[in-house]
Nucleic acid binder design. Sequence first.
RNA 1: GUGGGUGUAGCUCAGUUGGCAGAGCGCCAGGUUGUGGUCCUGGAUGUCGAGGGUUCAAGUCCCUUCACUCACCCCA
Length: 419
Amino acid sequence: MTFQAPKGTFDWLPPRSEQVLAVREALVAPVRRAGYGYVETPVFEDTQLFARGVGESTDIVTKEMYTFPDKAGRSLTLRPEGTASVVRAVLQHGLHTGQLPVKLWYSGSQFRYERAQRGRYRHFWQVGAEALGAEDPALDAELIVLAARGFSSLGLRNVTLLLNSLGDGNCRPAYRAALQEFLRGLDLDDETRARVEINPLRVLDDKRPEVQARLGGAPLVADHLCAACKAYHEEVRALLTAAGVAFEDDPRLVRGLDYYTRTTFEFTHGGLGSQSAIGGGGRYDGLSEMLGGPPLPSVGWALGVDRTFLAMESEGLLGDAAPGRVQVYGVALGDDARRRMFLLVAELREAGVSADMAFGGKGLKGAMKGAGRSGARYALILGERDLAAQAVQVKDLTTAEQTEVPLARVVEVLKGKVQ
RNA sequence: GUGGGUGUAGCUCAGUUGGCAGAGCGCCAGGUUGUGGUCCUGGAUGUCGAGGGUUCAAGUCCCUUCACUCACCCCA
């Protein structure tokens, strides 16, 4: 062993890598059907984008970013999340000056410098969707429904949707002050006490039992929402109910990014251990302005691909049957036959038939073994005898039935067999 | 950043009061000189995570260190 993947990272290898690809596609499919367009942004951005967008007081910004100077001395950061980049791209290219909302989805690597554990890695994969430039509870509901459909299309049953509203610029300051006053009266450790001053809402999210025990009488945001926020939230709830998406009201659900306003939600799964969130998001009406743009009320989510994979594994949804990698596998004996097989395999691929062949000068037995392992339905056997007869043996590996087919017709015949 | 657990073959793991480095799976070859998946036979593969110490002798005991992993914190 010479090198290994950096701490907190891991490799996806076949056959699991094929499965994770399918998971990613399944999560994205509902969004694409809803008219969201694909956006791809750089893996690194100006550090200030995240500092201002995600929030200076968040753990992500204060402790978890991969920040580095480039050769010209610019401070860059590997993206710890996707929303800030999407908003930046929308503003930079003026997408918001066209018809609203702008609906976008993305899929890609995210990076956070954290101590790794099950379901939490320094390099992880998210798919995300954002709808920018419209304040409409139907948009919040649409995104939540699309995420729920993504999870259910994978067969996941043990998923819980938690829902809350954080209020807006009108009602949140008063709530924040009331909460702060309550929290200051509690006996808390220094770190938590500091959080009370910087971001009191996140204290509600603390999972430590001794902290939770003290939060019993804490004021809840639901009781402090202004009329507009309350009506908005009720509409989101009603739409979800109408769409048949079950949810739980969680007045303590806060989430760790500063830009959220009004609707927040999280999808959790019971099979993951402590890293139970497999997706989450919310409304971020003020983010555009924080990044120097015009008011652009928006909502979005990100779903964790790796965590969704783990959730599926815990529900036994992955199976262990490796899917066939190719439909046809070539076995050649002798140099002349090998050269001919090389061309035949290329012709098959051109014709739309997936094909592989034995490499490395294996004997017949070893090559046939390779055919079996490839998962191919058909093996093509070409020896000197067959070559002389301008024919190839086509063997059905599931029935062991073997027929001779003229070389000139074999592509056509196989095309018909695998259709 | 804090606390636990685990490091032995490619993988999953045994290894007794300290006494020749092991099994299953996988891989390779043969049984079958032109036929896989089953079966039988044989074979290869080790810095026992690393460094130091105790001992006639260390995978095993002691110290240090590294890696992985789980949990806390936080989050997808």
